[in-house]
């Protein structure tokens, strides 16, 4: 029953919370750039306005991919907050992302396609670390189930500092923040125009925004797991990590994909793999 409330809570409240976090993000970003910034509810105003606009589309199929994208995002998040198998959560998350990529490919527009290709690169860079984190959780707690990882009384961060650092590294990629905002970004104009979202306008773009809120909450939820032994600390750390992401976003210029892929994989192998190796010898040595 508890799981049911969590799932319902995620589906209903995640967009609200995600939107608020997004609003704060924009204010903090503005302050870092010595601007005043929009009101905290601006993301919601944006989405409502987008909803009222014409649904411009290149062909009649590509908008629909976003529905599937959102559906799998919800499934992924619901499984996570329902305490299910973390590996399956990540796989569903990948499927969701896949459908965004497929939608972009389906438009047959050059900017969109190159954004899709770069999004695939981002997935290639970030996924190994996410899955490796799940393996790390398993090695400490003996289960892949989120419910059991949360219930574990060990402080996971002490066992998995490297994995945590690696996860934070790829979090920037997953949130598509600078310097890893290769596939698309919130900035108005850039060499890719809007990359993967180029051909999505009006209500379709609103859908992508809402999905991004769900996504943010799910990713922050994964950060929470590292500190689940103490909920207050966990929430504070999670918010702090998000603040760091904003700081990094504002302090860095976009890098080339080669650097992203190499550095992310290095971080995965050295921080993640190294951590697991040491942990294995501590636990079984």
């Amino acid at each position: 029953m508890n799981a049911f409330f969590w799932i319902a809570g995620y589906i209903l409240l995640a967009p609200v919370l995600g939107g608020l976090i997004n609003g704060c993000d924009r204010i903090i970003t503005a302050r870092m750039q010595s601007r005043v910034g929009p009101p905290v509810l601006q993301p919601f105003y944006d989405v409502f306005k987008l909803m009222e606009k014409d649904n411009l589309t290149v062909n009649r199929f590509h908008g629909y991919y976003l529905f599937i994208f959102l559906a799998f995002m919800l499934v992924s998040g619901a499984m996570f907050f329902g305490g299910q198998d973390l590996l399956m959560v990540i796989f569903a998350f990948i499927v969701a992302d896949m459908f965004l990529v497929l939608g972009a490919y389906s438009t047959n527009s050059p900017y969109s396609s190159i954004g899709a290709e770069r999004e695939l690169l981002q997935m290639l860079a970030a996924e190994p670390m996410m899955l490796l984190s799940a393996v790390g959780f398993y090695m400490v707690t003996g289960s892949f189930h989120v419910s059991e990882i949360v219930a574990c009384d060990k402080s996971l961060i002490l066992y998995l500092p490297g994995v945590f650092a690696g996860f934070c590294y790829v979090l920037t990629i997953k949130l598509r923040k600078s310097p890893f905002d290769l596939s698309t970004s919130h900035h108005a104009h850039q060499e890719l125009v809007k990359g993967i979202t180029t051909e999505f306008a009006g209500p379709s773009l609103a859908l992508i925004e809402i999905e991004h809120w769900y996504e943010t909450i799910l990713l922050l939820g994964m950060i929470y797991l590292f500190f689940a032994f103490n909920p207050i600390v966990a929430v504070l750390v999670t918010l702090f990590i998000y603040f760091l992401e904003i700081l990094i976003d504002n302090a860095n210029a976009r890098v080339k994909w080669e650097l992203m892929l190499k550095s992310a994989w290095l971080a995965t192998i050295i921080l993640g793999g190294g951590n697991l190796l040491v942990l294995y010898f501590i636990l079984h040595g």
Partner: peptide, 23 residues
């Protein structure tokens, strides 16, 4: 994990080629 991610990349881009709607 690494092998799986590499696999995802080449299948996905193939899939993308197939579903581009050219009119």
């Amino acid at each position: 994990i690494f092998g799986g991610s590499l696999m995802l990349f080449f299948w996905a881009k193939w899939m993308g080629k197939l579903i581009a709607v050219v009119g």
